[in-house]
């Protein structure tokens, strides 16, 4: 069937992109001046010690060969070892990834829950004061930095009212309720800022759709205004909204570091910053690879969503004779 063929195509493109990206990441990080031995041995190491370590770590091999070795390791779940502690990098990354995915996933769900109705409302009431109010509020939300929103929430709901914990992370597997309670404030602060951005795009998408000819047709056959938007606008607006959601998600995996810091959440962004500061090259390399994979995966999901929503992409143009 055509759809499954298209899906396979998207999947193949995903794999190829991932390979190309991994090569790019590897080359970039390995061809830059300054190598990992200096980090491990310190700046005063003797040349002999450096040379010994280099050959022990395989750093004297041609770079492409090293890439292949690394890739083979990655394929077996071995992302390398930290330059400092020697710990397997995978073991370091996975728990942080769980934190970031919990934070970003929940935050974006909340952002959508807030922004989709608000954006639709603002579009339907574009000429009324109420619609303009929504727009102005979102403008305000965009102007507030995420960390400030977080701090205010902590001060009010954690420090003063003592309703919720101010930070730290409890794994979902150890106590789901506690996991939830600890994430409420981070989710809200992420959702406020991202939701404010999203509202504008949702409003724009619906305004765009409401101006389309097929909307006029829908009204001319007897759909009432709102129902017409619901029935014929939703899918068409979703095409645009999905694109924005994909972009937001992609930037948030690192971008959430601001909120991770405010709420002391040990996420991927925080780990990346620490490993870059410490010049822990294998760790940086592995995190960047994970991030690239995540972003490509989001693109894949967005592509699949397009295919599901838009029949023009999944059916031929063949005209019925």
């Amino acid at each position: 069937m055509r759809l499954s063929r298209l899906l396979l195509g998207r999947l193949a493109a995903f794999v190829v992109s991932l390979l190309v990206a991994s090569l790019a990441v590897f080359l970039l990080l390995n061809l830059l001046p300054g190598d990992v031995t200096a980090v491990i041995l310190g700046n005063n190491a003797t040349p002999a010690a450096v040379a010994h370590l280099r050959s022990a770590m395989g750093l004297d091999d041609p770079v492409l060969l090293r890439y292949v070795h690394w890739l083979a390791g990655v394929a077996h779940g071995n992302l390398g070892a930290s330059a400092f502690t020697g710990e397997p990098v995978a073991g370091l990354i996975v728990p942080k990834l769980a934190v970031t995915i919990s934070l970003v996933g929940g935050g974006m769900v909340l952002a959508m829950v807030l922004a989709l109705p608000a954006g639709l409302f603002a579009a339907l009431h574009r000429r009324q004061a109420s619609g303009q109010m929504v727009l102005a509020t979102s403008q305000l939300g965009m102007a507030v930095p995420a960390f400030l929103a977080g701090i205010v929430l902590v001060v009010v709901f954690a420090a003063r009212l003592r309703w919720l914990p101010a930070g730290n992370y409890v794994p979902l597997t150890s106590d789901p309720l506690d996991w939830f309670r600890h994430l409420i404030l981070p989710w809200v602060s992420l959702a406020l800022v991202q939701g404010a951005v999203l509202v504008r795009y949702v409003r724009g998408a619906f305004l765009d759709v409401m101006d389309q000819d097929y909307m006029r047709t829908a009204r001319s056959i007897g759909w009432r205004r709102r129902r017409a938007v619901w029935r014929h606008g939703l899918r068409n607006a979703a095409l645009q909204i999905v694109t924005v959601l994909g972009l937001q998600l992609a930037t948030l995996f690192v971008g959430a570091v601001v909120i991770e810091n405010v709420f002391v959440l040990p996420g991927l962004g925080s780990l990346l910053l620490r490993s870059v500061n410490g010049r822990d090259l294998p760790l940086v390399q592995a995190i960047v690879l994970v991030l690239v994979a995540l972003i490509l995966m989001i693109n894949l999901l967005v592509d699949v969503a397009y295919l599901v929503i838009d029949p023009r992409l999944r059916t031929g143009r063949a005209v019925v004779e």
């Binding site: 000819d213 097929y214 006029r216 007897g222 205004r225 014929h232 068409n236 929503i309 029949p311």
Partner: peptide, 29 residues
Amino acid sequence: GDAAYSRLRGDAMTMVFQEPMTALDPTMT
């Protein structure tokens, strides 16, 4: 009002527009 008008539109009073290429919802059969 929109409600009363909508009962009329598409039933007793209908319309055909100029541009057929864009007049149908592209996502629905």
